[in-house]
Design a protein around this nucleic acid. Structure first.
Lengths: 213, 213
DNA sequence: TATCTTGCATATGTATACATGTTCTTTCAA
DNA sequence: TTGAAAGAACATGTATACATATGCAAGATA
């Protein structure tokens, strides 16, 4: 079965990493992956290079690729960077979102209040952030955030399950952000979004610290 | 001579694009480049894929790669994105730069005042921004800015030569930014840096508008 | 026993041939 | 003259063989 193309293989590997099925340090050998996917080394090779560029893979022994390990300092930088970019997007969105988009955001808030299942709350959370992201009217900055989030996702999936107390505070933070957006107060929106991202960082870092002290 | 490796070829092509020797829309054909560099298609291919990922190349007719053309709206988004990221870095730097770094920044300011040659002022300008960038203590966010700047550079090089009036206002803006950093006023630094990047955008956009109205 | 050297195992880097897909051109018919 | 269909041309996608580099292990030598 060689219906898999380079793009396809890349997506599969990304998914495996962000879903936590492939653990940091795990080797990514061209030949082995080629046999596994039923293709030659060439498309696998291309996929691995893209992984490296996306900072999801790095070089290990014998120049081999391995799933990237991140130091705790890298994690802090990563969340700080994502927080800065997403809060910038939110500040822009506060001044640029259409009336329709604002109403959609309000609706998403309502869905979040009515939802207690962590799984589907994750979905609602993604739609909340996605609505703000597209409301900023800057595709390049949005793509930049996507890149960064790909990397935070790898951590979240491996280490983080939303608990109910986090769910409650997430709701409150979302509402505060939305209110700042409705008031078209860019700077308040920026500040609130930054601290929202920071609090999700604290949880991930906390779980990590407890796990490997 | 085939001392050139994939990395080398990538760098050469990037340089050619940002320096304006390769114009937007120019085809990048694997076979032709391979012969030109004296290597096979394989390393050229890899370089082209990296160019595409860096948004410096895109697909043209017959799936061929061409040097990326940017619409004016893209340019606006790009500078806005770069402005947000760099101003975030500057805000962080205002609170994190060491005493030594602050003195270095002051020295660079002095060099800028003493310099009237646009060429070497470009150098000083790069060192000013580089000092702030590294003073922010966030390598990931700094790398993000580098990526964006690679793309703005392609425009600047093709369309922009600093004139002396711009040089004077650039000096004044740098001094204002530095003073906000010395005062450890993150928010003022952010605001000033954002408007500094925006004014360089205005110049590029202006020249562009006069060129192809 | 410690260390340096040599050789091999392993994984990526490159070259080349062939496969695939897309566009342009030519040709034939209405 | 126009339109559609077929095929040639061109460019990338993939497979495979060979080249190169790197780390590890074994053995020789001080």
């Amino acid at each position: 079965m060689s219906n898999r193309t380079a793009e396809n293989i890349f997506d599969t590997l990304v998914d495996g990493i962000v879903a936590g099925r492939m653990t940091p340090g795990e080797p990514l050998v061209e030949q082995a992956l080629a046999e596994q996917f039923g293709v030659s080394r060439t498309p696998v090779r291309e996929a691995l290079h893209r992984l490296e560029q996306a900072n999801l893979a790095e070089r290990g022994a014998r120049r081999a690729f391995v799933v990237r390990k991140m130091a705790p300092e890298d994690l802090a930088e990563l969340f700080e960077a994502a927080g800065e970019v997403e809060s910038a997007l939110a500040a822009l969105a506060a001044n640029r979102m259409s009336e329709i988009e604002r109403r959609r955001l309000e609706a998403i808030l309502g869905e979040g209040d009515a939802c207690n299942d962590p799984q589907s709350y994750g979905d609602i959370n993604a739609r909340f952030h996605g609505t703000i992201q597209s409301g900023a009217r800057n595709g390049i900055l949005a793509a930049t955030l996507d890149e960064l989030n790909l990397r935070t996702l790898a951590w979240r999936a491996a280490n983080f399950h939303e608990d109910s107390s986090r769910l409650a505070s997430s709701r409150a933070e979302h509402r505060a952000i939305a209110q700042a957006i409705f008031a078209q107060d860019g700077e308040a929106t920026r500040r609130l979004m930054r601290s929202h991202v920071a609090s999700s960082y604290i949880i991930v870092a906390d779980i990590l610290a407890k796990r490997a002290p």
